[in-house]
Amino acid sequence: MDFPVTFQIFGKTVLAHPVFETLGIFLGMRFYYYGKRKSAEKLSFNTSAAVIIGATAGALFGSKLIGNLENPFALFENFSLKEIWSNNTIVGGLAFGLIGVELAKKIVGHKESTGDLIVFPLIFAIIIGRIGCFLTGVYEETYGIPTDSVFGMHLGDKYWRHPVALYEIVFLIILWIFLKILAKKRKYPSGFLFQIFMLSYFTFRFFLDFIKPRVEIIGSLGTIQLVCICIIIYYIYKIKNREPLFRSY
């Protein structure tokens, strides 16, 4: 396979990453609305609208903020609005999307968790997006460091590299299966599946970033890893202080 994979759209050459990213968002949203219609949990129009607006605004802001802070030195050395807009990361999107939802719920006075319905659509959307990351190779900053391990691949330059996008896809498929089994075998408090997803994903991303190129901000940790630590601590506290954790059928 030759990297990067590109598509001809309206006479222009477009990298696979934005194509699959857009497709993932679209299909993930359709998946969410499908699940919402079938769910016994019904939210008022005001609550649904507030949650969607809060999640979208928070995710958009956070993905670009953390994406640009991954390399703050380059940001200030070569300031460019185009470059700022093009830098994104799912870690920032998830972290600040969470903040946006919590703020929106406070505004409309909704106290119950609303996260469980979005878990599987979110995993589905990330998997599709990561296919685009893999197909783009080293031409966007979603690749791994050089390696001589059996998993190494040529991603568009002279090095064998960790295909971190494939690692993430495999992890998300395993997490999907685990959460499906958990949902079928137990009754759980509202929001518990989302908490397990967030804790699992951010823990995975913390370790995954050790085999990705990164600018070290504190010690050997990059910006994304510092955000991961904050989210991991938050969800460990949330899960630890929620009783009862499970209720049997």
Score class of each variant (00 low, 15 high):
191 G>N: 03
200 S>H: 04
101 V>Q: 04
217 I>L: 15
175 L>Y: 02
71 N>L: 12
204 F>L: 03
68 N>I: 10
3 F>T: 06
249 Y>D: 12
72 P>H: 06
39 S>V: 05
186 R>S: 13
25 I>E: 00
210 F>P: 00
210 F>Q: 08
118 I>N: 00
37 R>W: 08
105 K>C: 05
174 I>C: 10
215 V>C: 07
187 K>D: 09
46 N>L: 14
5 V>F: 07
106 K>T: 12
136 T>Q: 07
73 F>V: 15
57 A>N: 03
79 F>P: 06
170 V>R: 02
76 F>G: 09
195 Q>W: 13
148 D>M: 12
182 L>Y: 07
136 T>P: 01
81 L>I: 14
71 N>C: 09
16 A>E: 08
26 F>R: 01
60 L>K: 05
31 F>V: 07
180 K>S: 13
191 G>I: 08
166 L>E: 03
7 F>E: 04
114 T>M: 04
12 K>I: 13
87 N>R: 13
19 V>G: 01
87 N>L: 09
163 P>M: 14
133 C>E: 00
43 L>D: 08
200 S>L: 02
49 A>V: 13
93 G>E: 02
242 R>Y: 09
117 L>N: 11
9 I>V: 15
76 F>Y: 10
80 S>L: 04
131 I>A: 00
108 V>A: 08
188 Y>W: 10
185 K>G: 14
142 T>V: 12
15 L>T: 08
152 G>F: 08
37 R>F: 11
118 I>R: 01
169 I>N: 01
227 V>D: 04
249 Y>M: 11
36 K>S: 12
219 G>D: 14
225 Q>L: 02
243 E>I: 04
63 S>F: 03
45 F>H: 11
25 I>W: 02
220 S>R: 14
11 G>H: 10
210 F>N: 08
89 T>I: 05
33 Y>F: 15
115 G>K: 04
33 Y>K: 12
208 L>T: 05
101 V>C: 09
198 M>F: 12
85 W>C: 08
63 S>C: 11
157 D>W: 11
194 F>M: 05
46 N>Y: 07
11 G>Q: 07
174 I>H: 02
49 A>I: 11
29 M>C: 07
117 L>T: 15
235 Y>P: 01
177 I>Q: 09
63 S>A: 14
28 G>N: 02
109 G>K: 07
10 F>W: 12
245 L>E: 11
38 K>G: 03
202 F>E: 01
29 M>H: 01
204 F>G: 02
226 L>I: 06
24 G>R: 00
132 G>P: 03
21 E>N: 05
77 E>T: 14
99 I>T: 11
22 T>G: 15
84 I>A: 03
212 K>I: 06
159 Y>M: 11
150 V>Y: 08
193 L>P: 12
118 I>M: 13
159 Y>Q: 10
241 N>C: 02
212 K>L: 07
203 T>A: 14
210 F>H: 09
141 E>C: 09
150 V>K: 08
87 N>A: 14
146 P>K: 03
180 K>I: 15
194 F>Q: 06
107 I>P: 02
14 V>H: 10
150 V>P: 00
126 I>V: 00
135 L>R: 08
